[in-house]
Design a protein around this nucleic acid. Structure first.
Lengths: 252, 252
DNA sequence: CGCTATGTTGAGAAGAGTCAACGCGAGTGG
DNA sequence: CCACTCGCGTTGACTCTTCTCAACATAGCG
């Protein structure tokens, strides 16, 4: 159980023992690659739900991989309005922008209790230089994240409230499915209504009303922090959603 | 004068002669680096305004650098709604996502007549492997573009119509300023109202009304495809805008 | 000259926001 | 054990931003 806000380091998981890497969503790695990755991993930390993993403006951020749990990337305006840029699931990279550029323009916050693999930020350039394969995969993961943000921007800019909600649920469901986190059409769903609102660019009240409407329309059901996608086809139709198929991706 | 929709190849500009690279916005490059970059550049093409530079879904895209002119990156939904993700100015990279992942989820279109430097897509991995410095800079440029998209998503999700217009104008102005494309507070401004609307996530009519309102409020003035930022301070206030200072960046 | 693409304006409709009240469960302290 | 607060979720009533429809202006072009 993660207890520390500061990220306690109990239970280092060696890359060779990674339970995540072996899932079908990820590209197989050679023993060599696993050893190299492991040598770059400087620690394994746990954070409680709600902990900040990266501060907006922070300029000494490490590079993380999310090992377990959910998180989100966000930006806030001076007056406090907050936009959630994308959600992070196991295997996703955190702090790449902050490592490449000199500071992070966004924050990252844990949505559930999480565990992360920590890679030294100072070594990012070293990594590109000495392990081009990993540098390439890092860029790959960055490009993939940008795809998600592109999709969200299109959603917020062009879709109606109902379409946005349906599209977000579908997108998260698809990603969880890929990771084997869905059983019986049911997945963990730790977002509050406010989180949803901030991700969708809608007010809290309107988000709740739209959510309720779609739930009653039979798209999905929620129960104690889980979500069941009752009718995927219907949800797709509500979302004007269409999807690129996803190939196995690199894992750090 | 570019005439070809297909990208004619008159006037190869060698990296050593690049008029862009020497501007203060870009990091100085050693002679070695310039020679290497030049060896990777396979052609120099011109496209007319309105030409597609990258098709949504295209899977054999090359890697471009925008050498002259404006372009934009966009996504369309099945029913035709279009979201402009970000605008591209000289020095910006195009097709990185498409090269790293297997296909582009977005399109790119020329907004003015443009010239681009073409780098072979097949060599992207080779590039990371043999020239880690360039691989790193590519990632850097990717991270920077994501910053722009993050900012746009925040704008579209959280700002009111007037704030959005002001923020977009300011952002483009700042970028042009960096590139030395502003004289007398005046810059080229080739966007149609429809382009603005698609970038801001607003309807055409409302975009026009908001634009007119802010113009009358004295923020900026437009004339024959140019824009003059009459009152930068006032524009900042309308935009709830604040900016990270920009350091010199790599150029490919 | 009439075409078409782009820009402008007004009026009414619809979507989304704001304000306010209330329910509910988890803690907490008397 | 109860009253209390606090965070979160829900709903209704009303407001206002934004969208849609439609008419008209203007400029470029065959």
């Amino acid at each position: 159980m993660p207890k520390s806000e500061n990220g306690s380091a109990q239970g280092f998981v060696r890359c060779a023992d990674c339970t995540l890497r072996v899932r079908p969503a990820f590209k197989p790695k050679s023993d060599d690659e696993i050893a190299i990755t492991n040598s770059l991993k400087i620690s394994h930390r746990a954070f409680a739900a709600g902990s900040p993993l990266l501060h907006q403006g922070q300029n000494d951020a490490d590079l993380f991989t999310l090992f377990r749990g959910w998180a989100f990337r966000y930006k806030t305006l001076p007056d406090g309005r907050r936009q959630i840029l994308n959600f992070l699931l196991p295997g996703d990279i955190m702090g790449l922008q902050a490592s490449l550029l000199d500071a992070a323009d966004h924050g990252i916050e844990a949505l559930t209790d999480v565990e992360v693999c920590v890679f030294a930020r100072r070594r990012t350039w070293e990594l590109f230089e000495k392990l081009p394969q990993l540098g390439y995969e890092l860029s790959w993961l960055g490009a993939r994240e940008q795809n998600l943000v592109d999709e969200n921007l299109t959603s917020v800019g062009q879709r109606s409230a109902r379409e946005r909600v349906a599209a977000l649920v579908l997108s998260l469901y698809r990603r969880c499915e890929q990771l084997g986190l869905v059983t019986d059409r049911t997945m963990l769903f730790p977002l509050t209504r406010q989180d949803l609102a901030d991700a969708l660019g809608l007010s809290l009240v309107h988000t709740i009303k739209t959510w309720t409407y779609l739930r009653r329309a039979g798209l999905f059901a929620t129960n104690a922090g889980t979500l069941t996608l009752v009718n995927p086809r219907l949800t797709e139709r509500w979302a004007s959603y269409y999807e690129r198929e996803m190939k196995p991706r690199p894992i750090l």
